[in-house]
């Protein structure tokens, strides 16, 4: 437990000092919003129905950037070597990294969401708790498998390029349900319907979190 916390704190400390991935993630998220705003010009009258999809595309893209950066940084000076030699189950590294990735992503998501309120002219108040829950579970599902796949990707010849290629097909159930849930909150307000997508995302997170935790040991190598 202490070690998970140590890894998380270390990532946080480096990030606070350099803001490398944070800036990149945030900027990319906002760029995606802007691009989609132009791409969907023809839907101007019904743009609100596109917002959930645009938001999650922005989250997924910036999240991929963050995940990539996270393990690439470990590779830089052979730091991964140091981590691999610690006397603990390597699942600990997985949990620490997943925690860090989730926190970074949630912070970026919050800011990107605020920008989207402005760009798409939305007003939310009562919806905020529901959205927070959806963002949280969706992000956890994303990082649960994203952390494992990013550890795989950085150790290939393709390095960071590979991550989106292998991550997005796997993550599809989370994206579909997260978009749908966000849509329910923003556009239909039929909160009973939220149960199903939230359940699917939770199941996804638990199943893949467990598998990743157990198998992380095997994929991690310097």
């Amino acid at each position: 437990m202490n070690k998970i916390w140590a890894i998380f704190r270390k990532d946080l400390l480096i990030e606070l000092r350099t803001k490398d991935s944070f800036n990149a993630m945030l900027f990319f998220g906002i760029v995606v919003l802007v691009i989609f705003n132009f791409a969907m010009e023809s839907l101007r009258s019904s743009i609100h129905s596109a917002v959930p999809g645009v938001l999650w595309v922005a989250f997924a893209f910036s999240g991929t950037l963050g995940l990539n950066r996270m393990f690439a940084a470990e590779k830089e000076n052979g730091c991964l070597q140091g981590l691999l030699m610690i006397p603990a189950d390597r699942g600990v590294i997985y949990l620490g990294k997943t925690l860090a990735a989730t926190v970074f992503m949630l912070i970026v998501e919050f800011i990107v969401f605020v920008f989207s309120l402005v760009f798409f002219n939305l007003t939310v108040w009562a919806e905020i708790p529901y959205l927070a829950l959806i963002f949280f579970i969706g992000t956890l599902g994303f990082t649960a498998v994203g952390t494992l796949l990013s550890a795989i990707a950085v150790n290939t010849r393709m390095r960071e390029v590979l991550l989106p290629l292998i991550l997005f097909p796997v993550i599809l159930p989370v994206l579909v349900n997260a978009v749908e849930a966000t849509n329910i909150v923003l556009n239909t307000a039929d909160y009973h319907a939220l149960k199903l997508p939230l359940t699917v995302m939770t199941v996804f997170t638990i199943v893949f979190g467990t598998i990743s935790y157990l198998l992380f040991e095997h994929v991690l190598e310097d």
Binding site: L148, I152, V170, L172, F208, L215, H218
Partner: peptide, 12 residues
Amino acid sequence: VSAVFGIIAFMD
């Protein structure tokens, strides 16, 4: 690594 991915893909 591919075995791990194979397990994940099928469970997905």
